[in-house]
Simulated scan of single mutants.
Amino acid sequence: MNYLKLNGCSLIQDQVLEEVFLKQQFPEGKDSDVSFGTDNKLLTDDNGAYYVIQLVSISTRVSGKTGTLGYYKVYQAGNYRLY
């Protein structure tokens, strides 16, 4: 599991910050063809509370495919892992 802080904060409060966090951490975040999304549900597991963030290739989705690049669990503590 990776541990990173969002702008010096050790706690991520909502799914909007979760998306911003991933955009800052992944090269895909700087790619205008990649969209980040969530269903806004706060979930929990043994590692804490998290949101599931989906990365999607816009051009692939427009061409009729799913465009899904991956799903990530982004924890409120700033940890993330592949879902």
Results as ranks from 00 to 15, higher is better:
residue 3 Y to L: 04
residue 6 L to G: 03
residue 48 G to E: 03
residue 78 G to L: 05
residue 10 S to E: 00
residue 14 D to C: 08
residue 20 V to Q: 14
residue 75 Y to N: 07
residue 80 Y to C: 09
residue 56 V to K: 01
residue 58 I to H: 08
residue 37 G to C: 15
residue 58 I to K: 10
residue 35 S to K: 14
residue 77 A to V: 09
residue 82 L to M: 12
residue 5 K to T: 03
residue 74 V to N: 04
residue 66 T to Y: 01
residue 52 V to A: 06
residue 36 F to P: 02
residue 31 D to G: 11
residue 31 D to R: 15
residue 12 I to F: 01
residue 15 Q to E: 11
residue 18 E to R: 11
residue 14 D to M: 04
residue 51 Y to C: 13
residue 52 V to P: 03
residue 28 E to Y: 07
residue 57 S to L: 01
residue 64 G to E: 05
residue 51 Y to P: 11
residue 16 V to T: 14
residue 48 G to L: 12
residue 31 D to F: 07
residue 16 V to W: 14
residue 11 L to H: 13
residue 3 Y to G: 02
residue 2 N to G: 00
residue 42 L to D: 05
residue 9 C to S: 11
residue 22 L to Y: 03
residue 54 Q to F: 07
residue 63 S to E: 00
residue 79 N to P: 03
residue 48 G to T: 11
residue 41 K to A: 12
residue 29 G to W: 02
residue 12 I to A: 00
residue 45 D to E: 10
residue 44 T to I: 09
residue 58 I to T: 06
residue 15 Q to S: 13
residue 78 G to S: 07
residue 25 Q to H: 10
residue 47 N to V: 11
residue 49 A to W: 11
residue 63 S to T: 12
residue 51 Y to A: 14
residue 15 Q to V: 08
residue 72 Y to H: 06
residue 36 F to W: 06
residue 70 G to P: 02
residue 45 D to V: 06
residue 47 N to M: 10
residue 61 R to H: 05
residue 52 V to I: 11
residue 28 E to P: 12
residue 47 N to L: 12
residue 40 N to M: 09
residue 13 Q to C: 06
residue 81 R to P: 07
residue 32 S to G: 14
residue 67 G to C: 09
residue 24 Q to R: 15
residue 53 I to N: 05
residue 23 K to C: 11
residue 12 I to V: 00
residue 16 V to R: 15
residue 1 M to D: 04
residue 23 K to F: 06
residue 2 N to Y: 06
residue 34 V to N: 09
residue 64 G to R: 05
residue 10 S to Q: 08
residue 7 N to C: 11
residue 80 Y to S: 01
residue 60 T to P: 02
residue 28 E to R: 10
residue 15 Q to C: 14
residue 45 D to Y: 04
residue 47 N to F: 12
residue 52 V to M: 09
residue 80 Y to R: 01
residue 37 G to V: 09
residue 9 C to D: 06
residue 1 M to L: 01
residue 30 K to C: 15
residue 83 Y to Q: 11
residue 30 K to E: 15
residue 61 R to E: 09
residue 83 Y to C: 13
residue 19 E to H: 12
residue 65 K to M: 00
residue 78 G to T: 00
